[in-house]
Design a protein around this nucleic acid. Structure first.
Lengths: 215, 215
DNA sequence: TTCGTAATTATGCAAGTGTATAAATACGAA
DNA sequence: TTCGTATTTATACACTTGCATAATTACGAA
Protein backbone atom coordinates (compact mmCIF):
# COMPACT_ATOMS: atom_id res chain seq x y z
CA UNK A 1 0.00 0.00 0.00
CA UNK A 2 1.49 3.33 -0.99
CA UNK A 3 2.17 6.04 1.52
CA UNK A 4 -0.32 8.33 -0.17
CA UNK A 5 -3.13 6.18 1.08
CA UNK A 6 -2.00 6.19 4.68
CA UNK A 7 -4.70 7.60 6.87
CA UNK A 8 -2.42 8.91 9.59
CA UNK A 9 1.13 8.90 10.85
CA UNK A 10 2.31 7.91 14.28
CA UNK A 11 4.39 10.40 16.21
CA UNK A 12 6.20 10.11 19.49
CA UNK A 13 4.28 11.05 22.59
CA UNK A 14 6.44 14.14 23.13
CA UNK A 15 5.93 15.43 19.61
CA UNK A 16 2.18 14.98 19.78
CA UNK A 17 1.88 16.56 23.21
CA UNK A 18 3.96 19.51 22.08
CA UNK A 19 1.88 19.95 18.93
CA UNK A 20 -1.32 19.85 20.93
CA UNK A 21 0.06 22.34 23.44
CA UNK A 22 1.15 24.76 20.72
CA UNK A 23 -2.22 24.49 19.01
CA UNK A 24 -3.86 25.17 22.36
CA UNK A 25 -1.70 28.23 23.02
CA UNK A 26 -2.39 29.77 19.65
CA UNK A 27 -6.13 29.31 20.09
CA UNK A 28 -6.14 30.56 23.67
CA UNK A 29 -4.29 33.67 22.52
CA UNK A 30 -6.92 34.29 19.85
CA UNK A 31 -10.15 33.34 21.54
CA UNK A 32 -9.54 32.74 25.23
CA UNK A 33 -9.59 29.48 27.13
CA UNK A 34 -13.26 28.74 26.49
CA UNK A 35 -12.87 29.65 22.85
CA UNK A 36 -10.14 27.07 22.50
CA UNK A 37 -12.46 24.10 22.05
CA UNK A 38 -11.19 20.54 21.79
CA UNK A 39 -12.37 20.31 18.23
CA UNK A 40 -10.62 23.53 17.22
CA UNK A 41 -7.43 22.44 18.95
CA UNK A 42 -7.53 19.06 17.23
CA UNK A 43 -8.08 20.67 13.85
CA UNK A 44 -5.20 23.09 14.30
CA UNK A 45 -2.90 20.26 15.35
CA UNK A 46 -4.10 18.20 12.37
CA UNK A 47 -5.52 15.34 14.36
CA UNK A 48 -9.01 14.20 15.27
CA UNK A 49 -10.44 15.23 18.58
CA UNK A 50 -10.36 11.80 20.13
CA UNK A 51 -6.56 11.91 20.15
CA UNK A 52 -6.51 14.69 22.68
CA UNK A 53 -8.11 12.40 25.20
CA UNK A 54 -5.38 9.86 24.54
CA UNK A 55 -2.68 12.25 25.74
CA UNK A 56 -4.57 14.43 28.19
CA UNK A 57 -7.31 12.91 30.25
CA UNK A 58 -9.21 16.18 30.29
CA UNK A 59 -9.22 19.58 28.65
CA UNK A 60 -8.34 21.15 31.98
CA UNK A 61 -5.15 19.08 32.04
CA UNK A 62 -4.20 20.20 28.54
CA UNK A 63 -4.79 23.84 29.37
CA UNK A 64 -2.75 23.60 32.54
CA UNK A 65 0.11 21.95 30.66
CA UNK A 66 -0.04 24.65 28.01
CA UNK A 67 0.16 27.39 30.61
CA UNK A 68 3.11 25.72 32.32
CA UNK A 69 4.91 25.41 28.99
CA UNK A 70 4.26 29.01 28.05
CA UNK A 71 5.42 30.48 31.34
CA UNK A 72 8.56 28.38 31.43
CA UNK A 73 9.42 29.31 27.85
CA UNK A 74 8.96 33.00 28.58
CA UNK A 75 11.18 32.96 31.66
CA UNK A 76 13.88 30.89 29.99
CA UNK A 77 13.84 33.10 26.93
CA UNK A 78 14.24 36.31 28.91
CA UNK A 79 17.03 35.03 31.11
CA UNK A 80 18.88 33.35 28.26
CA UNK A 81 18.87 36.45 26.10
CA UNK A 82 19.84 38.81 28.89
CA UNK A 83 22.68 36.51 29.97
CA UNK A 84 24.40 36.89 26.62
CA UNK A 85 25.33 40.49 27.29
CA UNK A 86 28.86 41.14 28.48
CA UNK A 87 29.86 44.12 30.56
CA UNK A 88 29.42 45.75 33.93
CA UNK A 89 26.65 45.02 36.39
CA UNK A 90 24.94 48.17 35.17
CA UNK A 91 25.07 46.85 31.61
CA UNK A 92 23.56 43.58 32.77
CA UNK A 93 20.68 45.34 34.44
CA UNK A 94 20.05 47.52 31.42
CA UNK A 95 20.13 44.46 29.19
CA UNK A 96 17.56 42.63 31.30
CA UNK A 97 15.22 45.60 31.13
CA UNK A 98 15.67 45.94 27.39
CA UNK A 99 15.23 42.25 26.70
CA UNK A 100 12.04 42.15 28.74
CA UNK A 101 10.55 44.95 26.69
CA UNK A 102 11.57 43.90 23.20
CA UNK A 103 10.27 41.14 20.96
CA UNK A 104 10.10 38.23 21.31
CA UNK A 105 9.48 38.64 25.04
CA UNK A 106 7.29 41.73 24.80
CA UNK A 107 4.81 40.85 22.12
CA UNK A 108 1.04 40.96 21.57
CA UNK A 109 0.59 37.23 21.54
CA UNK A 110 2.32 36.78 24.89
CA UNK A 111 0.15 39.48 26.45
CA UNK A 112 -2.98 38.01 24.91
CA UNK A 113 -2.07 34.71 26.53
CA UNK A 114 -1.45 36.40 29.84
CA UNK A 115 -4.86 38.06 29.67
CA UNK A 116 -6.67 34.92 28.57
CA UNK A 117 -5.21 32.88 31.40
CA UNK A 118 -5.73 35.50 34.11
CA UNK A 119 -9.16 34.19 35.16
CA UNK A 120 -7.99 30.64 35.51
CA UNK A 121 -4.78 31.67 37.24
CA UNK A 122 -6.77 33.46 39.92
CA UNK A 123 -9.02 30.46 40.51
CA UNK A 124 -6.91 27.37 39.88
CA UNK A 125 -4.39 26.61 42.64
CA UNK A 126 -1.86 24.87 40.42
CA UNK A 127 -1.82 27.68 37.88
CA UNK A 128 -1.58 30.22 40.67
CA UNK A 129 1.50 28.41 41.97
CA UNK A 130 3.13 28.40 38.53
CA UNK A 131 2.42 32.08 38.14
CA UNK A 132 3.81 33.06 41.52
CA UNK A 133 6.92 30.98 41.01
CA UNK A 134 7.80 32.65 37.70
CA UNK A 135 7.00 36.05 39.12
CA UNK A 136 9.21 35.53 42.17
CA UNK A 137 12.02 34.14 40.01
CA UNK A 138 12.09 37.25 37.91
CA UNK A 139 11.91 39.62 40.85
CA UNK A 140 14.73 37.93 42.74
CA UNK A 141 16.93 37.99 39.72
CA UNK A 142 16.15 41.64 39.15
CA UNK A 143 16.91 42.41 42.78
CA UNK A 144 20.33 40.74 42.48
CA UNK A 145 21.16 42.82 39.42
CA UNK A 146 20.07 46.02 41.12
CA UNK A 147 22.20 45.27 44.15
CA UNK A 148 25.21 44.53 41.97
CA UNK A 149 24.78 47.72 39.97
CA UNK A 150 24.50 49.82 43.11
CA UNK A 151 27.50 48.11 44.69
CA UNK A 152 29.48 48.78 41.58
CA UNK A 153 28.57 52.46 41.79
CA UNK A 154 29.75 52.55 45.38
CA UNK A 155 26.26 52.92 46.83
CA UNK A 156 25.00 50.71 49.60
CA UNK A 157 21.33 50.36 50.46
CA UNK A 158 19.43 48.61 53.21
CA UNK A 159 17.64 45.34 52.52
CA UNK A 160 14.33 47.09 53.00
CA UNK A 161 15.25 49.78 50.52
CA UNK A 162 16.56 47.20 48.05
CA UNK A 163 13.33 45.26 48.31
CA UNK A 164 11.35 48.40 47.60
CA UNK A 165 13.51 49.26 44.60
CA UNK A 166 13.11 45.77 43.16
CA UNK A 167 9.35 45.86 43.62
CA UNK A 168 9.13 49.25 41.96
CA UNK A 169 11.33 48.28 39.01
CA UNK A 170 9.55 44.97 38.58
CA UNK A 171 6.21 46.75 38.56
CA UNK A 172 7.40 49.20 35.94
CA UNK A 173 8.88 46.47 33.74
CA UNK A 174 5.88 44.17 33.92
CA UNK A 175 3.58 47.09 33.41
CA UNK A 176 5.38 48.33 30.33
CA UNK A 177 5.50 44.77 29.04
CA UNK A 178 1.74 44.59 29.29
CA UNK A 179 1.28 48.01 27.73
CA UNK A 180 3.53 47.20 24.83
CA UNK A 181 1.73 43.99 24.05
CA UNK A 182 -1.73 45.44 24.52
CA UNK A 183 -1.08 48.56 22.45
CA UNK A 184 1.78 47.73 20.09
CA UNK A 185 1.01 50.80 17.98
CA UNK A 186 1.16 53.24 20.88
CA UNK A 187 4.95 53.13 20.91
CA UNK A 188 7.58 53.77 18.29
CA UNK A 189 10.07 50.95 17.67
CA UNK A 190 12.57 50.91 20.47
CA UNK A 191 10.65 53.47 22.48
CA UNK A 192 9.41 50.99 25.07
CA UNK A 193 12.82 49.59 26.06
CA UNK A 194 14.03 53.19 26.22
CA UNK A 195 11.26 54.16 28.60
CA UNK A 196 11.98 51.10 30.70
CA UNK A 197 15.69 51.78 31.02
CA UNK A 198 15.02 55.45 31.71
CA UNK A 199 12.44 54.67 34.40
CA UNK A 200 14.37 51.91 36.12
CA UNK A 201 17.47 54.09 36.08
CA UNK A 202 15.54 56.98 37.56
CA UNK A 203 14.06 54.82 40.30
CA UNK A 204 17.35 53.37 41.49
CA UNK A 205 19.29 56.55 40.84
CA UNK A 206 21.71 55.36 38.17
CA UNK A 207 22.07 56.39 34.55
CA UNK A 208 21.60 53.10 32.73
CA UNK A 209 21.66 54.59 29.27
CA UNK A 210 25.36 55.22 28.87
CA UNK A 211 27.41 52.09 28.16
CA UNK A 212 30.28 51.15 30.43
CA UNK A 213 33.25 52.40 28.41
CA UNK A 214 31.97 55.71 27.06
CA UNK A 215 34.46 58.58 26.27
CA UNK B 1 -54.41 39.34 44.37
CA UNK B 2 -51.77 40.00 47.04
CA UNK B 3 -48.29 41.16 46.14
CA UNK B 4 -46.78 37.96 47.51
CA UNK B 5 -48.30 36.05 44.63
CA UNK B 6 -46.96 38.34 41.92
CA UNK B 7 -44.77 36.46 39.55
CA UNK B 8 -42.62 39.39 38.49
CA UNK B 9 -42.31 43.14 38.69
CA UNK B 10 -42.02 45.57 35.85
CA UNK B 11 -39.07 47.92 35.83
CA UNK B 12 -38.18 50.82 33.61
CA UNK B 13 -36.11 50.07 30.56
CA UNK B 14 -33.10 51.91 32.01
CA UNK B 15 -33.17 50.02 35.28
CA UNK B 16 -33.41 46.66 33.58
CA UNK B 17 -30.69 47.45 31.08
CA UNK B 18 -28.43 48.64 33.86
CA UNK B 19 -29.10 45.53 35.94
CA UNK B 20 -28.37 43.29 32.97
CA UNK B 21 -25.16 45.20 32.23
CA UNK B 22 -23.96 44.95 35.82
CA UNK B 23 -24.72 41.24 35.91
CA UNK B 24 -22.81 40.86 32.66
CA UNK B 25 -19.79 42.74 33.99
CA UNK B 26 -19.58 40.71 37.16
CA UNK B 27 -19.74 37.47 35.22
CA UNK B 28 -17.25 38.61 32.59
CA UNK B 29 -14.84 39.54 35.37
CA UNK B 30 -15.17 36.08 36.89
CA UNK B 31 -15.34 33.81 33.88
CA UNK B 32 -14.54 35.76 30.76
CA UNK B 33 -16.86 36.80 27.95
CA UNK B 34 -17.64 33.27 26.83
CA UNK B 35 -18.19 32.20 30.41
CA UNK B 36 -20.80 34.89 30.85
CA UNK B 37 -23.64 32.91 29.30
CA UNK B 38 -27.06 34.34 28.66
CA UNK B 39 -28.57 32.05 31.25
CA UNK B 40 -26.01 32.93 33.92
CA UNK B 41 -26.48 36.64 33.28
CA UNK B 42 -30.25 36.30 33.53
CA UNK B 43 -29.99 34.38 36.77
CA UNK B 44 -27.66 36.94 38.33
CA UNK B 45 -29.98 39.76 37.30
CA UNK B 46 -32.95 37.80 38.69
CA UNK B 47 -34.82 37.51 35.44
CA UNK B 48 -35.43 34.75 32.94
CA UNK B 49 -33.22 34.49 29.94
CA UNK B 50 -35.86 35.51 27.43
CA UNK B 51 -35.90 39.01 28.88
CA UNK B 52 -32.38 39.68 27.71
CA UNK B 53 -33.50 39.33 24.15
CA UNK B 54 -36.21 41.90 24.82
CA UNK B 55 -33.63 44.58 25.65
CA UNK B 56 -30.65 43.49 23.61
CA UNK B 57 -31.19 41.84 20.27
CA UNK B 58 -28.05 39.77 20.68
CA UNK B 59 -25.50 38.81 23.30
CA UNK B 60 -22.85 40.66 21.33
CA UNK B 61 -24.87 43.85 21.74
CA UNK B 62 -25.14 43.36 25.50
CA UNK B 63 -21.43 42.71 25.85
CA UNK B 64 -20.54 45.77 23.81
CA UNK B 65 -22.87 47.91 25.91
CA UNK B 66 -21.33 46.51 29.09
CA UNK B 67 -17.82 47.32 27.89
CA UNK B 68 -18.83 50.84 26.96
CA UNK B 69 -20.41 51.36 30.37
CA UNK B 70 -17.40 50.01 32.21
CA UNK B 71 -14.85 52.09 30.35
CA UNK B 72 -16.86 55.28 30.71
CA UNK B 73 -17.34 54.69 34.43
CA UNK B 74 -13.63 54.08 34.95
CA UNK B 75 -12.59 57.24 33.11
CA UNK B 76 -15.20 59.38 34.83
CA UNK B 77 -14.26 58.00 38.22
CA UNK B 78 -10.56 58.71 37.79
CA UNK B 79 -11.01 62.23 36.50
CA UNK B 80 -13.67 63.10 39.06
CA UNK B 81 -11.59 61.98 42.01
CA UNK B 82 -8.40 63.61 40.80
CA UNK B 83 -10.21 66.89 40.12
CA UNK B 84 -11.15 67.24 43.78
CA UNK B 85 -7.58 67.92 44.82
CA UNK B 86 -6.63 71.54 45.37
CA UNK B 87 -3.11 72.87 45.02
CA UNK B 88 -0.34 73.49 42.54
CA UNK B 89 -0.02 71.88 39.13
CA UNK B 90 2.48 69.51 40.66
CA UNK B 91 -0.06 68.50 43.28
CA UNK B 92 -2.63 67.89 40.56
CA UNK B 93 -0.28 65.62 38.68
CA UNK B 94 0.63 63.70 41.81
CA UNK B 95 -3.05 63.33 42.65
CA UNK B 96 -3.88 61.91 39.24
CA UNK B 97 -1.12 59.34 39.56
CA UNK B 98 -2.21 58.37 43.06
CA UNK B 99 -5.88 58.15 42.17
CA UNK B 100 -5.13 55.94 39.19
CA UNK B 101 -3.26 53.49 41.39
CA UNK B 102 -5.57 53.32 44.39
CA UNK B 103 -8.92 51.62 44.82
CA UNK B 104 -11.48 51.92 43.43
CA UNK B 105 -9.69 52.65 40.15
CA UNK B 106 -6.86 50.18 40.62
CA UNK B 107 -8.63 47.03 41.67
CA UNK B 108 -8.59 43.32 40.78
CA UNK B 109 -12.07 43.31 39.31
CA UNK B 110 -11.27 46.16 36.93
CA UNK B 111 -8.13 44.41 35.73
CA UNK B 112 -9.98 41.12 35.37
CA UNK B 113 -12.46 42.93 33.14
CA UNK B 114 -9.67 44.49 31.14
CA UNK B 115 -8.10 41.09 30.60
CA UNK B 116 -11.37 39.38 29.74
CA UNK B 117 -12.26 41.99 27.15
CA UNK B 118 -8.81 42.17 25.55
CA UNK B 119 -9.54 39.55 22.91
CA UNK B 120 -12.75 41.15 21.81
CA UNK B 121 -11.24 44.62 21.89
CA UNK B 122 -8.54 43.54 19.48
CA UNK B 123 -11.04 42.02 17.07
CA UNK B 124 -14.21 44.11 17.31
CA UNK B 125 -13.95 47.51 15.63
CA UNK B 126 -16.46 49.28 17.86
CA UNK B 127 -14.79 48.07 21.04
CA UNK B 128 -11.41 49.00 19.65
CA UNK B 129 -12.68 52.52 19.04
CA UNK B 130 -14.01 52.80 22.59
CA UNK B 131 -10.72 51.58 23.97
CA UNK B 132 -8.60 53.94 21.94
CA UNK B 133 -10.80 56.89 22.81
CA UNK B 134 -10.49 56.33 26.56
CA UNK B 135 -6.78 55.68 26.25
CA UNK B 136 -6.18 58.89 24.29
CA UNK B 137 -8.35 60.89 26.71
CA UNK B 138 -6.25 59.84 29.63
CA UNK B 139 -2.95 60.44 27.89
CA UNK B 140 -3.90 63.94 26.72
CA UNK B 141 -5.03 64.88 30.17
CA UNK B 142 -1.82 63.54 31.65
CA UNK B 143 0.22 65.46 29.09
CA UNK B 144 -1.51 68.70 30.04
CA UNK B 145 -0.77 68.14 33.71
CA UNK B 146 2.88 67.37 32.99
CA UNK B 147 3.26 70.51 30.92
CA UNK B 148 1.66 72.62 33.65
CA UNK B 149 3.89 71.13 36.34
CA UNK B 150 7.01 71.74 34.28
CA UNK B 151 5.92 75.31 33.44
CA UNK B 152 5.33 75.95 37.10
CA UNK B 153 8.84 74.76 37.88
CA UNK B 154 10.22 77.13 35.28
CA UNK B 155 11.22 74.37 32.89
CA UNK B 156 10.26 74.45 29.25
CA UNK B 157 10.35 71.38 27.03
CA UNK B 158 9.81 70.80 23.33
CA UNK B 159 6.57 69.26 22.09
CA UNK B 160 8.47 66.16 21.07
CA UNK B 161 10.01 65.81 24.48
CA UNK B 162 6.65 66.45 26.16
CA UNK B 163 5.05 63.77 24.04
CA UNK B 164 7.75 61.33 25.02
CA UNK B 165 7.37 62.14 28.72
CA UNK B 166 3.61 61.68 28.55
CA UNK B 167 3.97 58.34 26.77
CA UNK B 168 6.48 57.15 29.33
CA UNK B 169 4.42 58.24 32.33
CA UNK B 170 1.25 56.83 30.84
CA UNK B 171 2.97 53.52 30.25
CA UNK B 172 4.22 53.39 33.80
CA UNK B 173 0.83 54.29 35.27
CA UNK B 174 -1.16 51.85 33.15
CA UNK B 175 1.43 49.20 33.77
CA UNK B 176 1.38 49.62 37.51
CA UNK B 177 -2.42 49.68 37.41
CA UNK B 178 -2.38 46.30 35.72
CA UNK B 179 0.22 44.93 38.10
CA UNK B 180 -1.67 46.09 41.15
CA UNK B 181 -4.89 44.50 39.99
CA UNK B 182 -3.26 41.30 38.82
CA UNK B 183 -1.16 40.80 41.96
CA UNK B 184 -2.91 42.69 44.74
CA UNK B 185 -0.84 40.90 47.38
CA UNK B 186 2.51 41.77 45.82
CA UNK B 187 2.32 45.32 47.16
CA UNK B 188 1.86 46.73 50.64
CA UNK B 189 -1.06 49.14 51.08
CA UNK B 190 -0.12 52.48 49.60
CA UNK B 191 3.06 51.09 48.07
CA UNK B 192 1.77 51.17 44.52
CA UNK B 193 0.74 54.85 44.43
CA UNK B 194 4.09 55.60 46.03
CA UNK B 195 5.98 53.78 43.31
CA UNK B 196 3.89 55.55 40.69
CA UNK B 197 4.55 59.02 42.04
CA UNK B 198 8.22 58.22 42.51
CA UNK B 199 8.59 56.90 38.96
CA UNK B 200 6.62 59.62 37.23
CA UNK B 201 8.53 62.21 39.21
CA UNK B 202 11.82 60.62 38.26
CA UNK B 203 10.90 60.49 34.59
CA UNK B 204 9.89 64.13 34.27
CA UNK B 205 12.56 65.33 36.70
CA UNK B 206 10.36 66.76 39.47
CA UNK B 207 9.96 65.68 43.06
CA UNK B 208 6.24 64.96 43.26
CA UNK B 209 6.34 63.61 46.77
CA UNK B 210 6.66 66.84 48.75
CA UNK B 211 3.46 68.87 48.99
CA UNK B 212 3.32 72.44 47.75
CA UNK B 213 3.69 74.41 50.99
CA UNK B 214 6.46 72.55 52.74
CA UNK B 215 8.85 74.46 55.10
C1' DT C 1 -63.48 48.67 37.30
C1' DT C 2 -62.13 46.79 32.64
C1' DC C 3 -58.96 46.17 29.13
C1' DG C 4 -54.97 46.81 25.83
C1' DT C 5 -50.39 46.28 25.51
C1' DA C 6 -45.76 46.05 26.64
C1' DA C 7 -42.89 43.49 29.94
C1' DT C 8 -41.88 39.09 31.42
C1' DT C 9 -41.96 34.13 31.61
C1' DA C 10 -42.17 29.53 29.50
C1' DT C 11 -40.94 26.36 26.11
C1' DG C 12 -38.48 24.70 22.18
C1' DC C 13 -34.74 24.10 18.77
C1' DA C 14 -30.48 23.54 16.16
C1' DA C 15 -25.69 23.86 16.79
C1' DG C 16 -21.71 23.35 19.67
C1' DT C 17 -19.53 21.49 23.97
C1' DG C 18 -16.59 17.93 26.66
C1' DT C 19 -16.20 13.27 27.25
C1' DA C 20 -16.73 8.24 26.60
C1' DT C 21 -16.21 4.09 23.90
C1' DA C 22 -15.73 1.25 19.87
C1' DA C 23 -13.46 0.50 15.46
C1' DA C 24 -9.53 1.03 12.36
C1' DT C 25 -4.70 1.29 11.32
C1' DA C 26 0.38 2.03 11.42
C1' DC C 27 4.53 0.12 12.67
C1' DG C 28 8.01 -2.35 15.44
C1' DA C 29 9.04 -7.04 17.06
C1' DA C 30 9.16 -11.82 16.05
C1' DT D 1 6.66 -11.77 6.19
C1' DT D 2 3.06 -11.94 10.11
C1' DC D 3 1.09 -10.29 14.15
C1' DG D 4 0.26 -7.64 18.58
C1' DT D 5 -0.60 -3.52 20.33
C1' DA D 6 -0.40 1.30 21.09
C1' DT D 7 -1.77 5.10 18.29
C1' DT D 8 -5.27 7.25 15.84
C1' DT D 9 -9.83 7.74 13.89
C1' DA D 10 -14.86 7.25 14.04
C1' DT D 11 -19.09 7.57 16.27
C1' DA D 12 -22.20 8.52 19.91
C1' DC D 13 -24.17 10.73 24.01
C1' DA D 14 -25.67 13.97 27.43
C1' DC D 15 -25.42 18.61 28.34
C1' DT D 16 -24.89 23.64 27.36
C1' DT D 17 -25.18 27.38 24.26
C1' DG D 18 -27.54 31.44 21.78
C1' DC D 19 -31.61 32.46 19.72
C1' DA D 20 -36.61 32.19 18.47
C1' DT D 21 -41.47 32.09 19.41
C1' DA D 22 -45.60 31.33 22.02
C1' DA D 23 -47.96 31.94 26.40
C1' DT D 24 -48.63 34.66 30.55
C1' DT D 25 -48.94 38.67 33.50
C1' DA D 26 -48.49 43.36 35.45
C1' DC D 27 -49.98 47.85 35.24
C1' DG D 28 -51.46 52.29 33.32
C1' DA D 29 -55.24 54.36 30.60
C1' DA D 30 -60.02 54.65 29.79
Amino acid sequence: MSDARRKFKRETADQRKEALIQATLSLVAEKGVRGATVRAIAERADVTQGLIRHYFSTKEELVTAAYETHMTEMTDLTFTMAAKVQGTARDHLAALVRTSLEPPVADPRAVALWASFLNKVQQDAQMKATHERTYADFRDRLQDLIRAALDEAGQSVSDTRLHHLATACNGVIDGLWLEGGALPDAFAPGELPGIGVESVGAIIGLDLEQRANQP
